[in-house]
């Protein structure tokens, strides 16, 4: 036990706490308070506005986008993680996949929007190629710039993110567990369904939640891709913030932001719970 003689040691963490208070807590509190006030008084108008049809549509679209890309990205990312987990830790393949994954998942953003515009946009390489070779029009009426396009482009950072967060779980599977299962009489399939599957499930579900939150909160890619209209919540916030026509939109932004905090916080809490379980097993 440390001596609790004085409060002096606390001084050491004050700069850090003060910094977070200014740049993280104050903005968050401003959003939360702002969502419930209008012209300086308590007001539920903005919260009520969350139930208007445009905002509800945006929420639904956001959930569809995050849910579908979490699922697609989660399954495909887990598959890729499993494949590269069998490569030695120091192999170039593994390092290269992880480096590219980190770049796409963490730096990505605006760049990824342009990556797909250059591929299947109106004059994109693949669009032109297929047009010339097979007379197939994959550009259509610009579906890349709709919710469907967002789903496709989001997968481009969701799959890599899944690889990064799920690989440690796959690496955590010990060779002894497979061998023990085999000596006990388990077939390959039985090992997968009764040992590896149950062991990886919490990590897999947790990763799906993380992917959901990641897509739900993402802004850059959508903002670069969709310049007209606001199909999803983050773009509604953009519209509310940059709107010069309707005054008082600022506080609608607060309300939508609050809605995002609530959704993401719920998802991340579930994620933390699942992670705790899986890390206890994998010690």
């Amino acid at each position: 036990m440390r001596r609790t003689r004085s409060l002096v040691p606390l001084v050491g963490v004050l700069p850090f706490l003060a910094y977070l208070a200014v740049f993280l807590l104050i903005p968050t509190v401003v959003v939360i308070v702002g969502a419930f006030t209008e012209n300086g008084t308590f007001d539920l108008g903005n919260i009520r506005a969350l139930s208007n049809s445009a905002t509800v549509d945006a929420l639904r679209n956001s959930v569809v986008l995050s849910g579908s890309t979490a699922l697609i990205g989660g399954v495909l990312g887990a598959l890729l993680a499993t494949v590269i987990a069998s490569a030695p830790e120091r192999s170039l393949l593994r390092r290269a996949v992880l480096a590219l994954s980190g770049s796409l998942a963490q730096t990505g953003g605006v760049s990824l929007a342009f990556a797909w515009m250059a591929t299947i946009g109106g004059t994109g390489t693949l669009t032109v190629l297929l047009q010339k070779a097979l007379s197939v029009d994959i550009y259509g009426s610009g579906w890349l710039y709709t919710l469907h396009g967002l789903i496709l482009v989001y997968c481009y950072f969701q799959i890599p993110l899944m690889v990064i967060v799920f690989l440690p779980a796959v690496d955590g599977l010990r060779a002894q567990w497979r061998e023990a299962a085999e000596t006990l009489g388990a077939s390959r399939l039985q090992y997968l369904t009764q040992v590896a599957g149950p062991l990886l499930l919490p990590a897999f579900l947790g990763s799906l939640l993380l992917l959901f939150a990641n897509a739900f909160a993402a802004y850059a890619t959508a903002a670069a891709l969709v310049s007209q209209g606001s199909p999803i919540l983050p773009l509604m916030i953009r519209a509310a913030l940059t709107s010069e026509i309707v005054l008082g939109q600022q506080h609608l932004a607060y309300a939508i932001a609050l809605e995002m905090i609530v959704v993401v916080a719920l998802v991340m809490t579930a994620y933390a719970l699942l992670l705790r379980r899986s890390s206890r097993w994998m010690r």
């Binding site: 010990r174 002894q176 567990w177 061998e179 023990a180 299962a181 085999e182 000596t183 006990l184 009489g185 388990a186 077939s187 039985q190 040992v195 149950p198 062991l199 097993w281 994998m282």
Partner: peptide, 19 residues
């Protein structure tokens, strides 16, 4: 194959299924 051999095996360590 191993799973048809009917052999009980005890490993060095950490071979119990953690779940």
């Amino acid at each position: 194959p191993t799973n048809k051999r009917d052999m009980g095996m005890v490993f060095q360590a950490y071979s119990l299924f953690p779940h």
